[in-house]
């Protein structure tokens, strides 16, 4: 069981990376990978929200939708629970943990409707994971996403220092090419572990 969980965790980070293999969550990936600080802030927010929403969505699907034979509405239910749970967490953080809210709370509303969050909840359902496996998979996938965005942001900061980028390539252009090359590099992990 432990080996199985470890395999899923490593596969979610490296071989089945959310950003570089499935190309999910590209909007914040491109717009927020300009600086390392912003990228890591966004990354931690993604880890938090993904873990939280998987913890909530798995029981909703398996304990409410499956017994009542209403699985067809799981897309919309997942979206609603993600939006509502993020709102609630933001309210709680703002009231009781203002320092934490100031550090990554601002990224929370931005990722409420991010496709990565929904995709991870959907993958856990499609692949019939149990509760613990779902949570491990969710945390692994989110960590994979954070690794990808942080590497791209760091490369982008280095590129800015070199300052030899053609005018038309500045901003999203160079980030897209960097992510493409990085995705090729991550392809090297293919075959190591599989889901």
């Amino acid at each position: 069981m432990a080996i199985h969980l470890l395999t899923i965790f490593i596969a979610a980070i490296l071989t089945h990376n959310m950003a570089l293999t499935y190309l999910l969550g590209m909007c914040p990936f491109i717009s927020l990978s300009k600086s390392l600080k912003t990228a890591s802030g966004m990354g931690f927010a993604v880890v938090f929200v993904v873990a939280l929403t998987t913890i909530i969505n798995w029981p909703i699907y398996n304990l409410i939708l499956v017994p009542t034979n209403t699985e067809l509405i799981y897309y919309i239910v997942f979206i609603i629970t993600i939006a509502a749970s993020v709102q609630l967490v933001e309210m709680i953080m703002e009231r009781f943990f203002p320092a934490l809210q100031a550090s990554f709370g601002i990224f929370l509303p931005l990722i409420t409707v991010n496709c990565t969050i929904l995709a991870i909840s959907l993958f856990t359902v499609i692949r019939n994971y149990d509760y613990i496996t779902s949570i491990i998979f969710a945390i692994g996938s989110a960590l994979g996403w954070i690794i990808a965005i942080v590497i791209v942001a760091a490369i982008n900061e280095k590129l800015k220092l070199i300052g030899d980028i053609p005018k038309g390539m500045k901003g999203p252009g160079v980030i897209m090419i960097t992510s493409g090359i990085l995705a090729l590099a991550f392809l090297g992990f293919a075959g190591m572990v599989n889901l």
Binding site: I60, I64, T70, I73, I76, V77, A84
Partner: peptide
């Protein structure tokens, strides 16, 4: 049933 469940979930949230 789907509509009912959907509405219950929305109401709770």
């Amino acid at each position: 049933m789907a509509v009912l469940i959907m509405n219950i979930i929305l109401l709770v949230i």
